[in-house]
Amino acid sequence: MDPVALPRRLLAEFLGTALLVTAVVGSGIMASRLSPDDVGLQLLENSIATAFALGALILTFGPISGAHFNPVVSAADWFLGRRTRTGLTATDLAGYTVAQIAGAIGGSILANLMFGLDAVSISRNQRAAGHLWLGEVVATTGLLLLIVALARSGRASAAPAAVGAYIGAAYWFTSSTSFANPAVTIGRAFTDTFAGIAPSSVPAYIAAQLAGLLAATGLLLVLYPHAGAASGDVVVHHPAPRSEETR
Rank of each mutant, 00 (worst) to 15 (best):
I109Q: 07
I105Y: 04
E136R: 02
T84Q: 14
A111Y: 08
D77N: 15
T141C: 15
A180C: 15
R155S: 05
G142S: 14
L113N: 09
R83I: 12
F179V: 12
A158Y: 14
G87N: 08
L93Y: 04
A149N: 01
L146M: 10
G106V: 10
N112E: 09
V73D: 01
S153C: 00
F190E: 01
I101V: 15
S176Y: 06
A158G: 00
E136L: 05
R188T: 12
T141N: 12
A102Y: 00
A162L: 10
A162Q: 06
R85I: 14
D77F: 05
A76P: 05
I167A: 10
A169M: 11
A180K: 09
N181A: 03
G168T: 03
I167D: 05
T177N: 12
F79T: 13
F173V: 11
L146N: 04
G154C: 11
M114I: 15
R82P: 07
A94E: 04
S157D: 15
L113A: 12
V184W: 09
L143H: 00
A159F: 06
V148D: 02
Q100V: 10
T177Q: 09
D118E: 15
T86A: 09
F190M: 02
L113Y: 13
D77T: 14
I105K: 07
A111N: 05
G81N: 01
A158D: 08
R83C: 06
G116T: 06
E136C: 07
R82E: 12
A119M: 05
G106N: 07
A111G: 09
W133T: 02
T91S: 13
S153E: 04
S178N: 11
V138E: 01
V163R: 01
V137Y: 06
L88G: 12
I122A: 13
L132A: 09
W78G: 10
A161W: 03
A180D: 07
M114R: 11
A90S: 13
R127A: 12
Q126F: 07
A159S: 07
T91M: 11
G107T: 09
L117K: 12
G103S: 03
A76E: 08
P182W: 13
G106P: 07
M114G: 13
Q100T: 08
N125P: 00
G142P: 10
T140L: 10
L144E: 02
A161I: 15
G187V: 04
L93C: 04
T91W: 02
S157R: 15
A139S: 13
